[in-house]
Design a protein around this nucleic acid. Sequence first.
DNA 1: AATGCCTGTAACTATTATAATTACACCTTT
DNA 2: AAAGGTGTAATTATAATAGTTACAGGCATT
Lengths: 146, 146
Amino acid sequence: MRVNTRFTVAIHILVLVALNDAHPATSEMMAESVGSHPVVIRQVMSLLKKAGLVETKNGLPGGRLSKPQEEITLCDIYQAVKNSEESVIFDVHQNPNPKCPVGCNIVSALDAPILHAQDAMENALKDYTLKDITTYIVEKYSQQNK
Amino acid sequence: MRVNTRFTVAIHILVLVALNDAHPATSEMMAESVGSHPVVIRQVMSLLKKAGLVETKNGLPGGRLSKPQEEITLCDIYQAVKNSEESVIFDVHQNPNPKCPVGCNIVSALDAPILHAQDAMENALKDYTLKDITTYIVEKYSQQNK
DNA sequence: AATGCCTGTAACTATTATAATTACACCTTT
DNA sequence: AAAGGTGTAATTATAATAGTTACAGGCATT
């Protein structure tokens, strides 16, 4: 698997939880759907839980959404799984020369633009809710089985 | 140094080129300002050259901008240094289970939102030009030396 | 209350992207 | 021709992150 997939894995998990019809899926079953490892599922689930998007009970398989699907945006999910390292899309190079007029000011010069880009990205993610994703998947699937 | 810093290194280089006052900087000098290795500078420079943002002559130190600073947006720079891998902010998990209704459709379900977020980010980068960055740096530096 | 199945999480390993570096052919100026 | 630079391929080192192991603890069924 590639890097940085926690975000899409989180969406995948939430779709499974949302569509879960009374058959609580274990982390092992979810891992099979996602194509990953049960512990990865539990780790991501833990982040989603901390963010208040999902509720689980220790020892019991599955979980359920804390809010209606329509109220969970992809931005909420993104913020749930991002860590502080990733909190900004771009990393600024670490060791610019403080003795150079450019080197000593490049980092602060880039603050605003990078934040602006980050905000724009997160706002764009607010245009989609979990409901949009589940709806797409359910419709696509029913077409495929027509 | 951290990952993914090509973008900010590229900006740093272009600022040096833009502010370069008749003293062509070698890749070694630039590397000292950036806090990196001369070859990294040449590699990034090569990408900027391919993107038509900068002109250099083999064998000769330094280079010069192909366009006025006002016409080079941070988006232009971003697109110059991104590779196809990074062309999308988020990687989708690679092995969703094709036998699962969710697994077989999650990737295409995420296409639109991810592209939307990517576009929003790139558009936000268009709000800043190289001129904005150099102006900020020059002003900040002159304040510091008042 | 005991067993079995599950979660939660810490800790470790493997993988992989990317920065750093080495090496060298080729260009330019003196 | 010599010195000093670029361009780029190839290799190594580093670090982020996915995968995995291990295990303590919760819950339900018996």
